[in-house]
Nucleic acid binder design. Structure first.
Length: 170
DNA sequence: ACGATGATGAAC
DNA sequence: TTCATCATCGTA
């Protein structure tokens, strides 16, 4: 199971490293696992696409917390976004899980896995019934595409174009 | 191409 | 306290 050691690295490194890892969800005694195929990194206050670019607020406080906990919020009044806090405590950054095998889109992932604000701030682990595992799948770095992040045009010409989105080539 | 739908943060 | 904005998706 991936723990704080794994997440206590740059969000960019963690985002790339999460491709090919598994997201496990347990509910009602049933365990389902999904291979992660798409992620995005949000890195620090300087990153204008990162919510922490606004500094510490009630909402962004969690991004400054210890690595390996979930940052979950509602977007467009409808969809929950699943993020995992990364890097050292007090360095605000996170990785957004944008897609898993056979489910594309961050809103659809959380809908399918029934992830909502209940898990916000919880540590990734069995206790929270949502965790991550390395199942030994080797991903060739050439099979990981890097692109600009989705839906962050507001972040300006520099930050909206950073290649912080990682996805597995089919 | 667009509307649904609610939390957030900044302005007033 | 009001207002614009938003890390999306399903329908058209």
């Amino acid at each position: 199971m991936l723990g704080s050691k794994f997440f206590e690295r740059s969000s960019i490194v963690v985002a790339k490293d999460l491709i090919g890892k598994f997201l496990i969800r347990e509910q009602g005694g049933e365990v389902e696992s999904f291979m992660i195929t798409e992620t995005e990194a949000y890195d620090g206050e300087k990153d204008l696409a990162c919510h922490a670019s606004k500094g510490r607020t009630k909402r962004t406080e969690i991004l400054y917390a210890k690595p390996g906990i979930f940052y979950i919020y509602l977007i467009y009044g409808m969809y929950h976004m699943l993020n995992i806090v990364t890097d050292k405590k007090d360095y605000p950054s996170a990785v957004l899980i944008r897609g898993v095998k056979s489910i594309s889109g961050p809103g659809r992932v959380t809908k399918k896995l029934k992830i909502d604000r209940m898990l916000h701030g919880k540590e990734a682990g069995k206790k929270s019934s949502l965790w991550l595992e390395d199942r030994g799948i080797m991903v060739n770095q050439k099979d990981i595409l890097k692109t600009a992040r989705i839906g962050v045009d507001y972040a300006g010409p520099i930050w909206s174009k950073k290649l912080y989105r990682f996805l597995l080539k089919k």
